[in-house]
Write a protein that binds this DNA or RNA. Structure first.
Lengths: 340, 340
DNA sequence: GTGAAAGCGCTAACAT
DNA sequence: ATGTTAGCGCTTTCAC
């Protein structure tokens, strides 16, 4: 049998109430008692029972973490890193994370995650783009919800986002600084706020440098930003135009696909064409040349959203908060000065 | 406030004890009462409180799932699929899964996952190769442990494994059937039981067809079986020998690296060289040609290990059980008849 | 076949 | 500053 509060109380020669007060760091406890009790707790390696606590406090100590299955299973460890950040921070706050995936075509009326139906979480974190239906279905459960890396148009949730616009500007500006003028944009799922923000950053940077925006060299019709679609979009791009010297891909996965296309077509990177990605995903080092990209602090994002959730659960604030985490240019070998 | 057993009892006009007995499907309950109570439970959408249950039963209803961080973050969704299978099956048994990662260099004395220290799980599932230290540290907690896709040499745990030897035989035999005789083996982390089993299968198949085993064309010194090491191992291989017509890579990640090398060197696949992988990981479709491989039922593996755990928790058996899940050849375009 | 009641470990209101 | 105690929702033994 595990150690209980009684064992601690007996050994410390105080009542269980005192032990409880010490644990919760109550002010009206004498320093001596506090020290003594804390020592005994350590000695006995006592951990309060979550079940007992949960029963009286009507809290579970669990946070639900929801991802769509395609996000969870994607090749680049993006959302898995966000999850890891959240899990890491959850330790700090003594929460457990219940991870589950939902279908990426979730619709209103579909079965919600079990931890919601059974009310076994105190709050819900949602990472990445999810179908509108899930948010709508979740609404009536009245659970605190925080989002990471996604922000639906017409709703108002506390959220942690990447500074995508400024990332798009930084990426494009980097190419402009290297004297590129014919800069293509490769995007997928352009309705996704993150991606349209990156695209917006691209346009802003061009405008600032008085470079004409040319929609003809912006391929944005792919439905999902993965390697394959990067490859296909690049193909489409070069069927339309050949004057390109620089390419900004909306994420690394697409950039990798683009690189593959360029290589097959005999373009040298970066001598003929420079390419910059976004995310700084640990793609295999076998990438040749290593990709210049915009680093996104994924673990940090996960940590921040857990912090946000913890604040919400302590009623630290009521108005939905937005946090933007900063990005950073990572210059590798796939970009160089334009020679045209 | 959530619906409790009292609400159900009142509405059904029985005592809470009766409701409890119905929930647990006790024999001494009349069919009428059972039907009525079950109806009310559905009507009220009643879910027993885990906290209350846990408090009295001294069970948590949680299963800990441990992975090393490099396994969790690897590019191919292998262990993530196993996790998903486990999570899926856990719904069936009404368990929650607490996923956490440990460092791949975990040593005895390092801090164990929180859910172990705080005894908030009823059992532990470990997927993939883990350092011996974690198993050793876990031992004294006396928790049921089940393994998936890894089996330490000198210990005895219930485990679900891929039939790696027979997979190695199938892969090699496939090349032999296509008339290949100079078949190379590319492996990484050769001490890993799965990989040495695949290697063993390779040798068995050669022997059966009276082909001499040539250690010179077996590159097994990479420390981790990823794309980069596949690339480097292929390089090493072709520096030693050029008569190769077929390659069996110990997993798809290495196979992809090998393909990259072959392409760079101007070999045509499969006209010049056939290559077969192992795992059937959803590598991007941009793989050209699509890789012939050995399919491993990853989700199934996760489901099976959860079943095993559930059996253990119900004391369905005492002796450590081993389950081998079958593999399957997936013939795509990277293998063809040898033309030498 | 069903109900009453004890008790799981903890928190918090109240008593001292 | 510390102790006493009710009660959170459930399971299970025992009584009827």
């Amino acid at each position: 049998m595990a150690i209980t509060i009684k064992d601690v109380a007996k050994k410390a020669e105080v009542s269980i109430a005192t032990v409880s007060l010490v644990i919760h760091n109550h002010r009206r406890i004498s320093p001596e008692t506090k020290t003594k009790v804390n020592r005994i707790i350590k000695e006995l390696n006592y951990h309060p029972s979550r079940s007992a606590r949960g029963l009286v406090s009507q809290k579970t100590g669990n946070i639900g973490f929801i991802l769509t299955d395609d996000h969870f299973l994607r090749s680049e460890p993006f959302y898995t890193r966000i999850f890891l950040g959240t899990e890491f921070q959850a330790r700090e706050y003594e929460y457990y994370i219940l991870l589950t995936t939902i279908a990426s075509n979730f619709q209103v009326g579909d079965r919600l995650p079990r931890f919601v139906l059974e009310r076994n979480v105190d709050g819900i974190i949602i990472a990445g783009k999810v179908p509108a239906g899930i948010l709508q279905s979740l609404a009536k459960y009245n659970l605190p919800i925080a989002l990471a890396d996604y922000y639906p148009m017409d709703d108002n949730y506390p959220v942690v986002l990447i500074d995508n616009v400024s990332g798009g500007i930084t990426a494009t500006q980097h190419l402009i600084n290297l004297n590129h003028r014919n800069i293509a944009f490769i995007g997928g799922d352009i309705d996704h706020p993150s991606i349209s923000d990156r695209f917006q950053g691209y346009k802003n940077a061009l405008e600032k440098s008085l470079i004409n925006f040319n929609p003809n060299i912006c391929i944005t019709d792919a439905d999902y930003p993965n390697r394959e679609n990067g490859f296909l979009s690049a193909k489409k791009l070069f069927e339309r135009s050949s004057a390109i010297t620089g390419i900004f891909a909306c994420n690394d996965a697409m950039a990798i696909g683009v690189m593959q296309y360029l290589k097959e077509k005999g373009f040298r990177i970066p001598e003929d064409i420079s390419i910059i990605g976004f995310d700084d995903v640990e793609a295999d080092l076998s990438l040749d040349p290593p990709l210049t990209t915009i680093r996104v602090p994924k673990t940090e994002l996960g940590i921040e959203v857990m912090r946000l959730m913890s604040d919400m659960l302590q009623n630290k604030f009521t108005s939905p908060k937005k946090i933007l985490v900063p990005i950073e240019l990572v210059e590798r070998k796939s970009t160089a000065r334009a020679n045209k």
